[in-house]
Simulated assay, not measured.
Amino acid sequence: MSTIIFAFAIFCGWLVFDIVKHRKLTFEMVLSSMIVAVLAGLLWLILEWIF
């Protein structure tokens, strides 16, 4: 459950950062935020399994 919350937080943070940086919302920004969130979630899950 913490992995999902972490990935969602990364998605929201990355999206807000892109919106502030570019002053607009595009599909590419949402897609890149989703990709980063999925990768961060997978890395977090792997770290949970290791430790």
Rank of each mutant, 00 (worst) to 15 (best):
F27K: 00
I50Y: 05
W49F: 12
K24I: 02
K21G: 00
W14Y: 09
L47H: 02
W44F: 15
G13M: 03
H22K: 12
E48K: 04
T26G: 12
S33A: 04
D18T: 10
S32K: 14
I4M: 02
F11P: 01
K21C: 01
M29E: 12
S32D: 14
I50K: 14
H22T: 10
I50R: 11
C12V: 10
S2T: 05
I10M: 08
M29P: 12
I5S: 00
W49V: 14
L39T: 14
F51N: 11
C12D: 00
V30P: 00
M29L: 11
M29F: 12
L25G: 00
F17E: 10
V30S: 02
L42M: 15
H22D: 14
A7K: 13
A9Q: 06
A9V: 09
A37S: 13
A40E: 11
S32E: 14
E28H: 09
L47W: 06
I19D: 01
S2W: 08
A37I: 04
F6K: 09
M1N: 00
G41I: 01
L39C: 15
A40V: 13
L25P: 00
I35L: 15
F27R: 00
T3P: 04
V16R: 03
I4G: 00
A9N: 04
A37P: 04
M34W: 09
D18F: 11
G13T: 01
V20M: 06
L43R: 00
F11G: 07
G41R: 03
G13W: 03
C12H: 01
S32A: 13
T26W: 08
L15C: 01
H22S: 09
V38A: 10
A7D: 06
A40P: 14
L42I: 15
I46A: 15
R23I: 02
C12E: 00
F51T: 11
F17N: 13
M34E: 09
L42S: 11
F11V: 02
I35D: 12
M29N: 14
M29R: 12
C12K: 04
A40C: 14
F51G: 13
L45G: 14
M1P: 06
E28D: 14
A37Q: 03
